[in-house]
C-alpha cells in the first residue's frame, strides 16, 4: 500500500510529504527507540507518540520512510525539518496508536511481511 493511500484512507495531517508513491510493506508501533531500532524493517511505517528530533534519526538509520504521530501529538519543529530534509513522510492523527493501527487494518490491507 502506498504512503499516499494510507494518508488518504486514514485522513492524516501531513507535516512532511516525503515520497507518497513509496510502498509500505509492514508496520511497527512503539515509543521506545531501542525497540524500534530492533524491530523496524526497511520500508515499514512507524506509529509513535514520540515527537522529538531523534524520531527522524531512528527512521533514517532503519530506512523507515513513514512516521505516524498518534494521539494528536504535535511534532517539534526540528523533527518536521529533519524529516523533510531526509525525504521521510511525517503525518499525524488524533487517534491513538491502537485506533490508528485498527483503522489501517480495517482497510483490508494486511501490511506485514
Amino acid at each position: 500500500m502506498k504512503i499516499s493511500e494510507i494518508v488518504r484512507q486514514l485522513d492524516l495531517k501531513t507535516y512532511s510529504a516525503g515520497d507518497g508513491e513509496r510502498e509500505i510493506s509492514g508496520v511497527v508501533s512503539g515509543d521506545l527507540l531501542s525497540f524500534i531500532m530492533a524491530e523496524a524493517r526497511e520500508g515499514w511505517m512507524w506509529i509513535t507518540v514520540q515527537v522529538h528530533l531523534n524520531v527522524a534519526a531512528v527512521a533514517v538509520l532503519k530506512d523507515v520512510p513513514f512516521v505516524l504521530l498518534a494521539s494528536g501529538r504535535q511534532p517539534e519543529k526540528d523533527l518536521v525539518e529533519r524529516c523533510a530534509a531526509e525525504g521521510i513522510t511525517l503525518a499525524g492523527t488524533p487517534f491513538s496508536s491502537y485506533e490508528a493501527a485498527g483503522r489501517l487494518w480495517e482497510t483490508g490491507q494486511r501490511l506485514r511481511e
Binding site: L32, L33, F35
Partner: peptide, 12 residues
C-alpha cells in the same frame, strides 16, 4: 519519557 533507556542497548 523520551523513549530512551529501554534497557535494550547492549543486547541490540
Amino acid at each position: 519519557e523520551l523513549g530512551f533507556g529501554a534497557g535494550m542497548g547492549l543486547p541490540n
